[in-house]
Structure formats: structure tokens, C-alpha cells
Design a binder for these strands. Structure first.
Lengths: 300, 300
DNA sequence: GATGATTGTTCGGTTTAATCGAGGTCAAGT
DNA sequence: ACTTGACCTCGATTAAACCGAACAATCATC
């Protein structure tokens, strides 16, 4: 590869984020055939296939996922720069910098963060998605005030920070309506050998699900693994397979992704944590986030 | 600004790194007039001047320095991605990931790191430059094994890490031969009102120099401040002003930048630290780096 | 001070690369 | 079978990046 073309990379990034060339073409104000062509050029330059063309959709290849991780960081920085430049270096208002682990459903993230917007008038919330390690690194140098995660701080990291449990939600399975109707009968045995979309192995939820499958002696066929839960659901919508999501947001998931709930993985839950630099939470907005999450969010 | 153009940004980044459009044009395999034009487009898009045109050279404006910081992170990631992609995800050999704060001279950095290359056969050293805060964040999540800095860990950062003093070097002043001959007479009084290039205020060395100037009652005219010491020296070579550098590398600085030593700032020194995640250093390469630095490097 | 080398800039015309429109293929739903 | 919605291929078109030539400013040197 001679030169990394950042235009190509940006198209690639958008396509993965949006889940398809067609959707990406809208946000980029380009025609699909242009993006398709440019993607091919990127693949040539990289020397590896970035996508597996499956059915009428695209699934990022292993290499594609690696590239996506980098692209994500790169264009987050680019967006930050654009913001900084546009605002003309004006004084920052009261800002809450939140880090959100991208393996959590965006809807859950939204529900957790949303109270901060309501309670504090004039508060500006800056959301920052990424892998937990990256976010904790930013927390350590005070680029973030709080990190919302689905697992506590990993051991072995030299970051001084503290966990605050927010609550947990049971896990349900979803699929396209037609598939869901079939699978709902004889659940959970119907999941045996069924095409399944799963979080990557490192994910906490993945561990829980693997154990559960073991326990009930059911082996689904894992057709794809995802780092980002929004991406996972996008593939679920496309019909690539059955996918898990928190039962707490069943309604929204069904509406947004045109899928139906199949059933609940009994005993498997996803937990949520707020991670802050101090044991005692000081930032008022952070305090209200954790308090409301604990009292209301997962009480159902 | 509608869209951040990463081509333009890359040209800008290269120009700042190399110190001039002319030098950048060589490494980019483009003609100067192209780069000049593209830079202007970037400035239009950003809405602020990125350079002050001074003499026949370019000096990054305040906004330019901000943009440069971001560009640096962005293209470091890009380079990392290109590397990762090219190597085809091969297994990593024994690797030492070193972080170098960009305010210390590259030559000093080289001398400190170099022993690791000699002692361990087949060791691959990956160098990573940046601001101390960023590097410490990477150290916390084990992306780096060691950070070489000119100051100890700042208080208030939630990173668990430990300082290991390596030694110190006196500070000397340098300038173009013609200027140096004049200034060497009646040094240090000759520095009064002389054009001076300095590190930014946050820098440890800057503090020491400011104190020293105060003490001997000399006020140089600070014409530019730098975050990156290589950049500072590049401007010094261009003749923008007199600049400070460690006396330990006087010979190399004179040869590389075509300048002469004026004199030594009596009592002002720059200190060097290795920062590691553990109090007791485990990594063998890290151990040899610190040991050799302590015993040989600054014994003169 | 004149001189030559070096640097950045401005102005056209040229070349490269991105983009689109039209016409496919293939898979899934009705 | 037929429609729909996805992606792909192939030319023509258009936008941009790029260069050559000529110029202005600066700085070291004579």
C-alpha cells in the first residue's frame, strides 16, 4: 500500500457505521456506485478484503473490523478538531464528558445519560464512544468525567478509578418477524444450530451467554461477532441471524430494527456500571446520573 | 467548514513537521506551489490563519498548533493502521513500546533508547511521541512499557506509575554562526532583547530558564514558543532566533542544524526520567535502558 | 550594497481522480 | 412470477489536485 487514502477510509467507516452502502450514500450525499467503487480501491490498497459479501449485504471481515477500530479513533479525533476549530476556541461552558463503552446498546446509554441533560440547565454533555480500555485511559488524564460500562474496571490496568453499580437487565433474543415466530416455539431449544450474532469473546455479556448455552445444552451457530452493539443489531435487522439485547429496551429494539422478541435467556443479565475517578462522586451531574439510574431505570 | 479535508490536513501536518513547505514538498513528492495552494484552501475551510508568515518562513499560529496536535494523533493512528495492515496481522515479536515526550531533544531520546536495541537481540522497539499526559494514558492501559520524560508524573493524574530519575544535562544556547559569534561576547548579557525561541510555558525547562533570566536580569525577546523541541531547533536553524538545547548533545546539534554554541546557562539543567507502571522495573529492556542512562549517559 | 541561493506565492493550463447515469446481477419477500 | 432493494460494472462527465513559469521577499555572502 502506497498511501492510506483518508477519503476511502472515511467512506468505509461510514458504511460500517450505517450498516450498508445504501444508507451510507445518503449521509455522504453520494451515489451508491461511487462508494462501492471507492471501497474497492481501498481494498486494493489494503491488500485484504474488508467485507464479506453475504446475501445482499456486507459484513466486515476480520481485517475490516481492525480497520474500523482505527478509523473510529481517527475520525473521532477529526470531529473533535472540527468542533474545536468551528467554535473558534470559545470558552467551554459547563461540560460533562461522558465515555460510553460501545458494546452497550445505545438506547441504554441514552437512558442513563439523559437525566443529566434534564436536571442541569445549560449543561453540555459530550459523549465519547470507544473500547473500555481507551475510555479509562482518557478518564485517567481527566479528558472524561465518567465512563458508562457493562463491566467493572479490568484488573491489571494502572488506572485509579472506582466502580459504581447502576443496575442490570435480563437478556432477550430478537430476530426478523418470520424467523422469530418459528424460533419462539420450543424456545430455547429452537436456538440450537440457529444462526446467531454475538458480541466478541472479550465481552462480559458473551461470557454469560456462552455459559447459559452450555448449561441448557444448546449450541447456536455463531455467524458473526461484533465489538459494537449497534452494528450487531443492524446485522440482525438485515436478517443475518438472531441477536441478544437487553430486555429493558424490548419495545424500542422491535420498533427500530423491525424485529420481534423470541424469548428471554433465563438468568443471564447485563450489568451496568458508572466508573469515576473518585470513590465519592463529586461532579453534580455524575451524581444525578448514577442516582436516577439506580432508582428508576432498572426497577421493572 | 463543511468537511475536514484529510489531504489538506496531511499536507499541513507535514509542513509543520518538516518546518517548511520546501522540505515538505520533497517528502510528499509534490511541488511547493501545490502545497502552498492546498494550505490556503485548508485555512479557508478552517476560517483561521494556520501560519504567521515571518521572514521567508512559516510559523504555526496558535490555532495552527492546536490543529497540529490533532493532526499528529490522527496520522500516528493512520501510520499504525497502515503498519498493521501491511504486516498482515503477523504475530508480534518481542516488542518494547517506548513513549517519548516531544519536548525533549530527539538526540537525547535516541541515546536513552539506543542501548535497548544493542543489548537485546531481535528486540523490536516501537517509539511513540506525544504529550506527557497522552503517553501516560497509554502507559496506564499497557499500550506502552515505558515513558521517557523531562519531568516527573504530574500530580492530579489518576495513573498509577513511578518515576525513575535518569540524570540531567546543563543547558546551552545555540544560534546561526554569525549571530553566535556576536552573542558569545559578553554572554549572557548579550541575550538581552535578543530574539529567542523557547519551549511553551508548561514545559519544565521553560520554568528553569525563566527563573535564570530573572536572576541575571536579562530579558530576551521571545519570538516563538514550541511544544516540540525538534521544531524549535528547525526554526533555530532557519535563523528565527537563539534557542536552548542540552549541552550533552552540543556537537550533534551544531553539526545537524548548522549552528554554534553561544554559552551555558549556569545552573539550569534539564532532567530526564523513565516512567514505568511498576515501582520495581521488570521488563529486561527497560531495566537496561535505565541502568545505562544512569551510569554512562550524563556522567560527563 | 550587489549577488545568488532559497523560500513562498500567483497565475494559467493540464492531468488525475472522483463522481454520476444507465444498465446489469443476485437475493429475499409477496 | 414479479417486485423490491441491495450491490456491481462500464463508460462519460466533472471537480480537484497538480505542475510549469514567472515573480516577490528574505538572508547569507562577497
Amino acid at each position: 500500500m502506497r498511501h492510506l487514502n483518508y477519503n476511502h477510509l472515511q467512506y468505509f467507516w461510514t458504511v460500517v457505521r450505517k450498516g450498508s452502502i445504501a444508507k451510507a450514500s445518503e449521509t455522504l450525499h453520494l451515489t451508491p456506485q461511487t462508494i462501492s467503487g471507492q471501497l474497492k480501491l481501498l481494498e486494493d490498497s489494503v491488500g485484504h478484503a474488508l467485507f464479506h459479501r453475504v446475501g445482499r449485504g456486507l459484513v466486515p471481515s476480520e481485517m475490516g473490523q481492525v480497520v474500523y477500530q482505527y478509523a473510529d479513533e481517527i475520525f473521532s479525533l477529526g470531529a473533535e478538531l472540527a468542533q474545536r476549530v468551528k467554535s473558534g476556541d470559545e470558552g467551554v461552558p459547563l461540560t460533562l464528558n461522558v465515555g460510553l463503552v460501545n458494546s452497550i446498546a445505545k438506547l441504554i446509554s441514552y437512558r442513563i445519560v439523559q437525566p443529566a441533560l434534564e436536571l442541569e440547565a445549560g449543561l453540555k454533555v459530550v459523549c465519547n464512544e470507544g473500547r473500555l480500555e481507551t475510555l479509562l485511559a482518557d478518564l485517567a488524564i481527566h479528558k472524561l468525567d465518567i465512563v458508562i460500562s457493562d463491566r467493572p474496571i479490568p484488573t491489571g490496568l494502572n488506572v485509579r478509578a472506582f466502580n459504581h453499580a447502576l443496575g442490570e437487565s435480563p437478556i432477550a433474543f430478537f430476530a426478523q418477524p418470520r424467523t422469530a415466530i418459528h424460533a419462539a416455539k420450543k424456545f430455547p431449544r429452537s436456538l440450537h444450530q440457529a444462526p446467531m450474532l454475538m458480541p466478541v469473546e472479550a465481552n462480559a455479556l458473551r461470557q454469560g451467554l456462552d455459559d447459559w448455552f452450555d448449561q441448557i445444552d444448546v449450541s447456536p451457530k455463531i455467524v458473526a461477532e461484533f465489538d459494537d452493539s449497534a452494528l450487531l443489531k443492524a446485522f440482525g435487522e438485515a436478517g443475518t441471524g438472531i441477536f441478544p439485547a437487553p430486555a429493558a429496551i424490548t419495545e424500542e429494539v422491535e420498533r427500530m430494527y423491525h424485529v420481534r422478541c423470541i424469548g428471554i435467556a433465563d438468568g443471564v443479565t447485563e450489568s451496568y456500571y458508572a466508573i469515576s475517578p473518585e470513590r465519592k462522586i463529586k461532579h453534580p451531574a455524575v451524581a444525578s446520573i448514577t442516582e436516577i439510574a439506580r432508582s428508576k431505570l432498572f426497577s421493572a
